[in-house]
């Protein structure tokens, strides 16, 4: 564990790239924020689950400073669903041959503003990162994923992938995604994709025509959509627990 001097006292504003979709009034309530530190030692494989399920109306900001030493691996999964404002921000540094796997789920409803913000720094050669974020937003909620990948000059043979998909359940809901690449090495593979859509009406009809009530059909399709982000949880019991948690949250949201 290393201490980090990333406790900033200046309140962010919406002019800052990383905070452009944030609820600044709520940020103020949660500020200042101390970064939590995760260090994974060389060759180690760590797994973490972050569940942001703070009480209704609250404001939560979690900032994580993550360092993966050479050949280390971290599988991090996030379920971001609580509070009026909920932000999980990661600053990840990858050394040679390290791998960072992120599965992020956002379930936003009402007037919630929920964010997953990542900066992944490929500091050494041959490191890889794979980020899959799925979000559902209803009501007038805002769900945001800002993913920055920074490849240092030393980061040759970097392989970085980002995939973001959002489902909007209501007309007033918003999803924001912005990938950002900052690349100083020349032999690099960076892929990203983002889609925002609605539930497939044909699939809904198919399920209903077999007897599923509309709410059940919607929940089933939504859960299937979100499960992409949980598929990388290797342990069956842990994955099933995460899926059950998502199911319970959806039942409340739909």
């Amino acid at each position: 564990m290393t201490a980090l001097a990333s406790v900033s006292s200046t309140l962010p504003s919406r002019r800052d790239e990383d905070w452009r979709y944030s609820d600044i009034a709520a940020v103020e309530r949660a500020w200042p924020v101390a970064a939590e530190v995760i260090d994974v030692a060389a060759g180690d494989h760590a797994r973490r689950m972050i569940v942001q399920d703070a009480a209704i109306g609250s404001a939560t900001i979690r900032q994580l400073a993550i360092t993966l030493a050479a050949g280390a691996r971290l599988d991090l999964h996030i379920i971001n669903s609580g509070g009026a404002y909920g932000r999980v921000a990661l600053d990840v540094t990858l050394h040679q041959g390290a791998h960072f796997e992120l599965g992020g789920v956002i379930i936003a409803r009402g007037e919630q503003v929920l964010e997953i913000i990542t900066t992944v720094r490929h500091a050494g050669p041959g490191a890889s990162s794979n980020q899959i974020v799925r979000c559902v937003a209803g009501g007038t909620a805002t769900a945001t994923y800002l993913g920055k990948v920074a490849v240092a000059r030393a980061g040759q043979k970097t392989d970085a992938a980002q995939s973001f998909k959002a489902l909007l359940l209501d007309r007033g809901a918003t999803a924001n995604a912005k990938p950002e690449l900052e690349i100083f090495a020349d032999d690099v593979k960076c892929a990203h994709g983002a889609t925002v859509g609605e539930l497939d009406k044909t699939a809904l009809f198919y399920l209903e025509s077999r007897g599923l009530p509309p709410a059940t059909a919607r929940a089933l399709l939504t859960r299937a959509f979100l499960s992409d982000a949980l598929a990388s949880i290797a342990d069956d019991a842990a994955r099933e627990a995460a899926e059950a948690q998502v199911t319970a949250l959806l039942e409340a949201a739909l």
Binding site: A203, Y206, L207, R210, G211, L212, T216, L220, L221, R223, A224, F225, S227, D228
Partner: peptide, 13 residues
Amino acid sequence: IPGVSNLMFLRTA
């Protein structure tokens, strides 16, 4: 229907 197993679907139905 990606992500929904046949068995789960049919049992739910």
